[in-house]
Amino acid sequence: MIYSIDVQITAPVEDTEIADRVGTAIANVFPGAEPEEQHGEVVAEVHSLDHFSELLHRQEILDTARGEFFESQRGDTFSFDLKKQAAFEGVVNFAVGTPDELGDIHVRVRVEQPTVEEFVDHIAPPTEEGKPITPDDFE
């Protein structure tokens, strides 16, 4: 299966922050991103979520991720917010509720191919008792 996605990443840079550190936070979770500072925020784009998916598996937060992705799904896109400090450490921590005073990293994923559901199943597969269910499990 070939996946075709566009991932837009933005994060505000407050006066008390260093833009390079915000860029590093983005790159730690989304390697391949080339963060650039533009008008008080850092922006980046990637076309793969493989490393992000590895982090979700390693941290065993697949169910949480699936909930975030499907809750925000609108047509062929889904979005989510991440905590900057956790991302700086290479950790995925979804930002829910009140935004952090320094702002969060906003990620918007547009799936061209296959469907959003199939792509989410690829990066954050459904689980049973905390373990990913793979198509092999159905045979």
Rank of each mutant, 00 (worst) to 15 (best):
F88W: 14
V92Q: 06
S79G: 07
E89P: 00
K83A: 14
V91S: 09
D76A: 03
E68M: 13
G67S: 13
S79K: 02
D76C: 01
A87S: 15
K84T: 09
F69P: 00
A65N: 01
F78P: 03
D63G: 00
D63Y: 06
G90E: 11
G75W: 01
D76H: 04
T64F: 13
E68D: 06
R66I: 06
G67D: 15
T64L: 12
L62H: 02
T64Y: 13
R66D: 08
K83D: 15
F88N: 05
F78A: 06
T77E: 15
L62P: 01
G75P: 00
R74G: 08
R66E: 10
D76F: 05
E68A: 08
F94G: 08
N93H: 11
F80I: 06
S72N: 07
F80A: 07
G67P: 04
L82Y: 11
V92D: 06
A86Q: 11
D63M: 03
R66G: 05
A86L: 12
E71A: 13
Q73H: 02
G75N: 01
D63H: 02
D81L: 13
R66N: 06
F80P: 02
E71K: 09
L62K: 01
S79C: 04
Q85L: 15
S72Y: 06
Q73K: 02
V91Q: 15
V92T: 05
A86M: 11
D76Y: 04
R74E: 14
V91K: 14
T64C: 04
D76Q: 03
G75H: 01
F70S: 01
V92I: 15
F78W: 08
R66Q: 08
L62Q: 05
E89L: 13
F69D: 00
